[in-house]
Simulated scan of single mutants.
Amino acid sequence: MRSTKDRIRQAIAFELIGLLLSVPLAALVFGFDTGKTGVLGIIGATIATTWNYLFNLMFDHGLKSLTGSTRKTLKVRFLHAISFELGLMLAFLPIIAWWMGIGLLEALIVDIAFVVFYLIYAFVFTWCYDTLFPDPDAKGSGAQG
């Protein structure tokens, strides 16, 4: 299992690298001001981090209340992932529209673009991180390849 220090390093690295990649990319693709997009990125990272904690806490409590356990089947994992992303999108959508001065439909397109970017980025980042800083418990499990 990863140490607390390692988890903090991973979380900070994930957010910083994600911002360094997503902000200029979003500014370029959507023609937004880089400074304004940077602030939006910081707001988004803050919302995502807070939502991650709150959502997982609520989900685990609800799951334990309904089933007596926090064990997640594949079906429950899909429900968890989809409901997490939908909740995050709903929270971020009006902020994108307001901060960038755009309509809700354009904000939805920006929101979806961020979700797609971060899904791909999370996969690549985690793979690279696990390669550079292997989890001692993952040795021999085949989880890294």
Score class of each variant (00 low, 15 high):
1 M>C: 00
1 M>S: 03
2 R>W: 00
4 T>Y: 10
6 D>A: 11
7 R>S: 04
7 R>M: 12
7 R>G: 00
7 R>K: 12
11 A>M: 15
12 I>P: 09
16 L>P: 06
20 L>W: 03
23 V>H: 06
25 L>I: 07
25 L>G: 03
25 L>H: 00
26 A>G: 00
27 A>W: 01
29 V>H: 04
32 F>Q: 14
32 F>T: 08
33 D>M: 03
33 D>R: 11
38 G>P: 01
54 L>F: 14
58 M>I: 10
59 F>G: 00
62 G>Q: 11
62 G>Y: 02
63 L>K: 06
66 L>W: 07
69 S>K: 08
71 R>K: 11
74 L>Y: 11
77 R>V: 11
78 F>E: 13
80 H>L: 00
89 M>K: 04
89 M>W: 07
90 L>Y: 15
92 F>G: 08
93 L>N: 01
93 L>H: 11
96 I>E: 02
100 M>E: 14
105 L>T: 13
106 E>L: 00
106 E>H: 04
107 A>I: 04
109 I>D: 05
109 I>V: 15
110 V>C: 05
111 D>E: 14
112 I>F: 07
116 V>P: 13
118 Y>W: 08
119 L>G: 10
129 Y>R: 09
130 D>L: 08
131 T>M: 04
131 T>W: 06
132 L>A: 15
132 L>F: 13
133 F>C: 15
138 A>I: 05
139 K>G: 02
140 G>N: 02
141 S>Q: 05
142 G>C: 04
144 Q>N: 12
